[in-house]
């Protein structure tokens, strides 16, 4: 499903570069839920961005459904992201000028689907995550938990093979975090979709199939 090998990432100029990832290797199988934990600034987001084809690593290979993502053209890579990868961000990152329904429709519209088809899919998912009554509300008018639920619905609306979630509960209070964690685990249990979660939450990390730790740029599996 998703395999990365020898991922090196660094920031800054050559003489003052900060090495964030030092040869990270990870493989996620179909239906597997994997967590990456580590302190703030350890490079969890960078790892997710590299695996999600958002940030080109200095070195290394990322295979998404057997396609080398970084060898594709920019256009093909964008299409791969659209169809195979879903993203959930810590701060939901919903588009403020669009309603929750429109936000969820967005990946379908980017894929070229009709607005009716996209709206129908969006409504089904909003129903599933329990916020259909907020479908026509703008993000500024709903709670943090509802925003994150909408962000999760948006991430899975294209039925991606893998969902990359970057601290999905990091910005929520304890009760809402539990709700969102339960939602993620419920979606993960549905089967064919894999999840890679970067999280501080021990509860969430302990509920997944496999767990990795990222420290000083080195990614290692916690056995």
């Amino acid at each position: 499903m998703l395999a990365a090998s020898g991922i090196y990432c660094s920031y800054g100029s050559a003489d003052a570069s900060i090495k964030v990832l030092r040869g990270a290797d990870i493989t996620i199988k179909v239906g597997e839920v994997v967590a990456v934990t580590g302190p703030s600034g350890s490079g969890k987001s960078t790892l997710l961005h590299a695996l999600g084809l958002l940030e080109r690593p200095d070195r290394g290979k990322v295979l998404v459904c057997d396609e080398d993502g970084w060898e594709l053209s920019t256009r093909k890579r964008a299409e791969l992201r659209n169809r195979k990868i879903g993203f959930v961000f810590q701060f939901h990152h919903l588009l403020e000028e669009f309603t929750l329904r429109e936000n969820v429709m967005m990946p379908c519209l980017i894929a070229g689907e009709s607005s009716e088809e996209a709206a129908s899919k969006a409504d089904r998912l909003l129903e599933k995550v329990g916020i259909i009554h907020r479908a026509s509300h703008f993000p500024s008018r709903v709670s943090g938990g509802e925003k994150q639920r909408a962000a999760i619905a948006r991430a899975i609306v294209m039925k991606p093979d893998i969902v990359l979630a970057d601290e999905p509960t990091g910005n929520l209070d304890a009760d809402t975090s539990v709700e969102v964690e339960n939602l993620i685990m419920k979606l993960a249990d549905e089967g064919s979709r894999s999840f890679l979660l970067a999280t501080h939450s021990q509860d969430l990390a302990s509920a997944v199939h496999r767990r990795f730790s990222l420290s000083s740029g080195v990614l290692s599996e916690v056995l």
């Binding site: 299409e79 992201r81 588009l95 967005m106 980017i110 948006r154």
Partner: peptide, 16 residues
């Protein structure tokens, strides 16, 4: 700018 990043993450091409 962030919205554009989100759109790219959702698969919007650079020409878009």
């Amino acid at each position: 700018r962030r919205d554009i990043g989100v759109m790219r993450a959702m698969g919007l091409s650079p020409s878009g």
